[in-house]
Write a protein that binds this DNA or RNA. Sequence first.
RNA 1: GGCCCUAUCGUCUAGCGGUUAGGACGUCGCCUUCUCAAGGCGGUAACCCGGGUUCGACUCCCGGUAGGGUCACCA
Length: 438
Amino acid sequence: MAMTKVITRFPPSPTGYFHIGSARTALFNYLFAKNNNGEMILRFEDTDKERSKPEYEKDILEGLNWLGIKHDNDSVPKQSERLGVYRKHLQELINKDIAYISKEKEGKRDEVIRFRNPNTKIKFNDLIREEVEFDTTDLGDFIIAKSLDEPVYHLTVVVDDYETDITHVIRGEDHISNTARQILILEALGFARPIYVHIPLILAADRSKLSKRHGAVSIMEYKEMGYLPEAIVNYLALLGWNPGTEKEIFSMDELIGEFSLGKVQKGGAVFNSEKLDWINKKHLGKLTNEEFVDIAREHIPENLKNFPNFDLLLASIRERINKTSDIDKLAEDGEFDFYIDEPEMNPEKIVWKDEGNSAAKENLKKVVSLLERVDDFSYEGVKSAVQPFADERGRGSVMHPMRIALTGRDKSPDPFTIAGILGKEQTIIRLNRAIELL
RNA sequence: GGCCCUAUCGUCUAGCGGUUAGGACGUCGCCUUCUCAAGGCGGUAACCCGGGUUCGACUCCCGGUAGGGUCACCA
């Protein structure tokens, strides 16, 4: 038996930015379609002329592109450009007396087009929620258009889904209650029903729907914040879905391979940025230095970019961040200053506990003499030269003065790493500088 | 309020009649270390409540409760 090709759709209305919630809906549509060797279609539902804005269309397109969620239709249709199509169906419904022009007492205009509600029970099978039933009596004769050339959402969505052969309507749970009236319209028009799939909502920390107030910002802001698109995709997929295994880090291709609607959760999920940070760090870890520099370029301080041992420095930076913008914080806290300029220090800081200046001075001199003989001035080379002496003399007694001499800070990467990054010449200059001070 | 959906650690989740209720994030402790980070190890912490059904319920059914969604000439 030939299976019909799976076709899903992502139909945002360009009346707001492409936020986390929309992104996840798009992602689930995409993953499901691709998992079934199907297609996902993008269209803009811009029948609301007042609220639809080109800037939002741009933001949605940009966001989808950044995340790597690709639609299969070459051109993206806009409902505002298909008014003739809806008009035809509207006229048909009116001719059949399924819809009628209604005189209005309230509202913005004198007459609108209403659907004659048969006041029946509509039952549909949701792939995630199983059987859902509504009594349409509650809906009354609902409006399907403001005029023949001004159709409203419920009509346009049904027509477009039909005309593009959508097999699965995967959308947020907030659309469950819209489904009954859409089925009413679709049956009146003689269209086949798609399969409905209502996925749980992403919730703010207080379990309310994501709103402008918390979290419903453009996905592009996550780019600004230094997140990787693959991390956002990975995290979003895990919000409401799980692979059934303990695997947590996924590439887009892996998600496509494993995604199934059967494993989608029923209840809403709270968005947790700490877990996102963790996932982002994992994805950051997969990048080569070149790739990392490429995406972190704007965050890396200019004066660090020409640093002689930039690769080594980069490695120690990468260890300490969750997202690229964290580099800004490290820079603000002066974590990089000592790489560029010789650090501020005073004798009291250099001395380990209460050992006194002369002990510190003697130890540093010994370190200098040991390092002068080192040819391979790498972490390993420096460590093997200094470690035995530090073990013998007491690690703190040797390492602490060394750290302060090199960085001027109490907290820093370990002195061997720092020495490797600074290089032999600069390391010895700094050690001698400290010796002078003592 | 009507209608609809949902309900396992703080959060994301596994579980699909019999488990010491598992994992991850977070948190806490220990190890590592001169310090921070990373890493390793370990601890903490959950089945909303009440009835059934059953030899046996986190799991099935019913009822409460709680949370959410939706009730536009928005989508």
